[in-house]
Design a protein around this nucleic acid. Structure first.
Lengths: 423, 423
DNA sequence: ACAGTTTCCCGTAAATGC
DNA sequence: TGCATTTACGGGAAACTG
């Protein structure tokens, strides 16, 4: 006979890339002191799936059987950790290929199964359990889409094993989704999103509404359909920004100096009555993973004029850190001494006060040479663009307490993930 | 009985990386019309090596037997091409490990062996042949060292199968070596080295001499020992420059605008009587894969002063192409309008005439944004350095005819190499 | 032809071995 | 411990495949 529940922590990874090692751990919750110690656990991939219903089939390439042992760290129960597991696709097996092949590979859910057999007082016992749903990818370029699936699944079902979830995915309310989005920024980048930032995202996804909280959003609109007029979906866009923050903007983001999610209209409304030279930082809506700054100046008639620099993307930012770009940025108007138009971070923080501690000291001078820095320069000839409407000020982000709460509500088991795709 | 010679082109690759696919082809020189057509050839790695004498042992991971077929392209003789071959190291086999383990892995020579057995008029015949020596590496970081071995081997022996060559490697004369070096630049980068450039390299390796031609150079000094005071060997330094040219300087190199190999003393001697703003380009001798420009100006007393920019390496050059750096480079002296000190490429070519066709047009302006370029800027405060001795002018590189000749003399079979490490 | 997906493999970083 | 060598795997690009 089979018993349905054996371990806690039935797995670690949520997304597994073929050919890349992962780790998983199984723990026996009940103490079985009388069992002989060579209790072997076997790991099987997609054990119970009817072969006709999935598109792809995988198997564990490496050794998948191991004996349980007493765990040193905790209360002395039996556990076993599988390391160096690796997934490979079974090729040319799936003759009766997916009938539900409208699903993309990152919507295809799989599972890791664990089995153990032993004899207790002459009675043969089979233990068995399995992991939460897993997404299998073959290239890191599929990671963002995989995350979207994991997020959506966890957001909308408590079922630990609904592998057909994406055949007809439930819709999410904006209040649910916005929490998860903020939580993503919080865990990946160390700081979540404040009310204004989330409001801008809600409007982007759902259009202008008095309140977005109860609006329902489809899975497709979140992650599959392109944003109208853009060659990428909402989540791909958001994920590209997360990536940019993680790799190039972390300290500045955590100091709350990146307003980031703000419409161009709002941006101008915020800046227009400020001191000339006031600027703010926002993420590009037209390109993936870009950040720009917009600053205000007074034109010849005394009216406010606005300029934005071409968005900086990861390739530019890996040549020059963002804080240094802000420090060194110059606008040159034919023949004049170039000047940095960035004076005050909105609302009124002197630039060096905000970014000073993130400036990279120019690299040590190698003696016989003159050191050279890269300086971002714009040439200004055209007239500035026009002024736009509405006014609203930003607000501090959520408190740590609020995040702890979110974290509890939405515990995905992500912070215990194995190397490849932890944060 | 065995017959010692079967194919031409017994192999293609000279350097094989474990885990990376390679291709090899065997051709039967003699026509054997009566042989039955399923003539199978087997590929074996390091067939005849006494196991005690090598450090590492490898085997062909993939299918290594294939039937010969009539070659369409040529004269209708039998041939077979093995594709998708892959090498893997035998682990835990080499118990009686290398007694000559002073050799590094890139000095360890291996070979690919081919075997065929057939019956001709009732007579059993075994054919067998093997490749030229091969170097096996596990990471591309070992490629430069591997190339050094291949070059040295081909330069100094005609023996097609002296796998112990590096146990006591012969020495090369500078006249032999300099030809090969120039040939490397010629095949990898499209332009070889001229007499002055080679003279500078000869002096660097062998010290000041009236003529370096007959000087003997050891393998160790060429590729193993570090240059005195530097953390890299002569070849590693040279190879890093080849790499830099291939990836970032190709058109400028081929236009012969990079003097490159010129001592600092020579550089100053060349520049000192030229027009102010005259500059030349030279490779860094202190850092791997770096290029700098040195320009001349007149100091306050009218004497020549020299400045060099901190060398640009691949990371900088991938952010900004070299021609654009030359176009945009500025020196700023507190508060003044920044100026580009580079006016004439030595001896007297106006900068834009030399580099104009390699400038990248500033990227198309994405409308609402102000486009920004990265500009390399040096701040100048210190006084310039002193003037130095001697004078000699550069000379055009070798003629195509000279290269053809070299190519014939030194045919390494490299231009028929399989994908991974062909140039 | 083409988009979705996988494979290939360089180049950096980390791990391993000696 | 330090150096030589291998392994790991992200990331860009090419190859594959319906």
């Amino acid at each position: 006979e089979k018993q349905p529940c054996m371990p806690t922590h039935p797995h670690r990874p949520l997304i597994i890339k073929t050919g890349v090692q992962f780790t998983t751990k199984v723990r026996l919750l009940v103490r079985l002191p009388e069992v002989d110690y060579q209790l072997k656990v076997k790991t099987i991939f997609d054990k119970d799936l009817p072969p006709g219903r999935v598109n792809r089939q995988f198997f564990i390439l490496t050794n998948n059987t191991k004996a349980m042992d007493i765990e040193d760290s905790s209360n002395g129960c039996l556990s076993v950790e599988f390391r160096h597991l690796q997934l490979k696709e079974k090729k040319y097996i799936n003759v009766t290929k997916g009938n539900e092949s409208l699903l993309s590979v990152t919507e295809e859910l799989h599972s890791l199964n664990f089995e153990a057999h032993f004899t207790l007082q002459g009675l043969a016992i089979d233990l068995e359990t399995c992991s939460l749903p897993l997404v299998v990818i073959s290239n890191v370029s599929q990671l963002p889409a995989g995350w979207a699936s994991v997020m959506w699944y966890n957001l909308l079902t408590d079922d630990p094993r609904n592998l057909g979830f994406f055949a007809s995915p439930l819709r999410a309310t904006w209040s649910q989704l916005s929490e998860v989005i903020s939580w993503q920024f919080s865990t990946c980048a160390g700081r979540g999103l404040n009310r204004e930032q989330l409001a801008m995202l809600g409007e982007k996804l759902l259009g202008p509404q008095a309140s977005h909280s109860d609006c329902l959003l489809s899975w497709s609109k979140f992650s599959k359909e392109n944003i109208p007029g853009k060659p990428f979906s909402f989540w791909m866009w958001l994920e590209s920004i997360l990536e940019l923050i993680k790799k190039h903007l972390l300290p500045v983001w955590n100091d709350n100096y990146i307003m980031g999610f703000v419409s161009k209209e709002m941006e101008r409304a915020l800046l227009k009555d400020k001191e000339p030279g006031t600027f703010l930082l926002r993420f590009s809506e037209s390109h993936l993973g870009g950040i720009t700054f917009t600053w205000m100046e007074h034109g010849e008639n005394g009216e406010a004029t606005f300029n934005s620099v071409e968005p900086y993307t990861k390739s530019r930012l890996s040549a020059l850190p963002f804080a240094d770009i802000i420090r060194d940025y110059k606008v040159i108007s034919d023949g004049l001494v170039p000047e940095n138009p960035l004076k005050f971070l909105f609302p009124n923080i002197p630039k060096d006060e905000a970014f000073g501690r993130h400036y990279n000291s120019p690299q040590s001078k190698v003696h016989p040479y003159l050191s050279a820095s890269l300086i971002p320069i714009s040439e200004l000839r055209s007239n500035a663009t026009s002024i736009l409407a509405a006014c609203q000020s930003p607000e501090p982000p959520m408190t740590p307490g609020e995040y702890d709460m979110l974290h509890e509500q939405l515990c995905f088991d992500i912070d215990t993930m194995s190397p490849p795709y932890s944060e």
